[in-house]
Simulated assay, not measured.
Amino acid sequence: MRRMHSPTVRRRRLAAELRKLRLSAKLGSAQAAKKLGWPASKLTRIERAERGVAAPDLAALLELYEVNDPQTRNGLAALQKQSKERGWWYDYRDVFGGSALPDFESEASHIQTFEGLAVPGLLETPAYIKAAFRAGDALPDSVVERHLEARLERQRILEGHNPAKLTAIIDEAALRRMVGGTKVMYEQIQHLAHMALRHNVDLRVLPFSAGAHAGMLGAFTLLHFPDPLDTSLGFIESVASTLIVEEPHQLERLSEVFGHLQGSALLPNQTVDFLHRMLDDIPV
């Protein structure tokens, strides 16, 4: 699969570059905005990647910062154009809502995720996906199929010649819950055992025997990107919303928790053995 550019990631990268250029020009944010005749909030929002940059505005900024190198100007113009493109997930905005996770996933080089109650979305089988979306709500088949299509499209980042690396820790509780019944869970656990053998997937089960652990407050995901300018992000999803974590101290805390969870979880080879034992115990 051809890895796609993430417009949101490119907007963040462009914002970081523009802030660096302003600082190199020894201009304060308010000072630069005043010289451009802009409200101070406009430049602030651009540098925080809270809004895009129109081509004329980019040209004005580069003129103000005296950026004359053609390679730099062309590179920033390319970022500006890519930041306005629509990715595949735009067609599924009715499914994803305001969550930008699939957008960021498309360009992430390493995804770390912990799930305590369900199988991670990137590792779910079609039958499991359908059963999960039907739980609790009498959703029409058309809506369920729509969610299925979107979820399977998301999973394609783990395929191809340049797949993302996935490190997933799953609490045993998520595997013991019979989502969709024994047949669905047998197929799901079998799929996990298969995925665990992929070179880009590091799968670990956190067994009940580990007792209390650092992730008991809930699931979360950390995304890391290949370009140093693209800082890591954290995602914490709830029933009502998705929290995007960007502050360094918060990301450090999530990384610490993930490290503790890895220390408590089974090793990858132990996880495969554990999954096979589970298959032996499921009556099908």
Rank of each mutant, 00 (worst) to 15 (best):
M1G: 08
R2D: 13
M4I: 03
R10K: 14
R11T: 00
R12E: 02
A15P: 00
R19H: 11
R22F: 00
A33S: 14
W38F: 12
G52N: 02
D57K: 05
D57T: 08
L58P: 00
A59H: 05
A59D: 15
A60C: 02
D69G: 06
N74L: 07
Q82G: 01
K84F: 03
W89G: 09
Y90K: 06
D91G: 05
V95K: 12
P102G: 13
F104Y: 15
A108V: 02
G121Y: 06
T125R: 00
A135N: 06
G136T: 03
G136P: 09
L139K: 14
L139N: 05
V144S: 04
L148A: 07
E149K: 14
A150I: 05
L152T: 08
R156P: 03
G160K: 09
H161T: 14
P163S: 01
L166C: 07
A168M: 09
Q190S: 15
Q190Y: 04
Q190K: 15
H194S: 10
R204H: 08
P207H: 05
S209D: 07
A212V: 12
A214V: 01
A214K: 05
G215L: 06
H224K: 13
H224Y: 13
D230P: 01
T231H: 09
L233P: 04
F235S: 05
F235M: 09
E237H: 05
A240Y: 06
I244C: 04
E246P: 08
E247Q: 15
L251K: 10
F258L: 15
L261I: 09
F274T: 03
L275M: 11
R277D: 15
L279T: 02
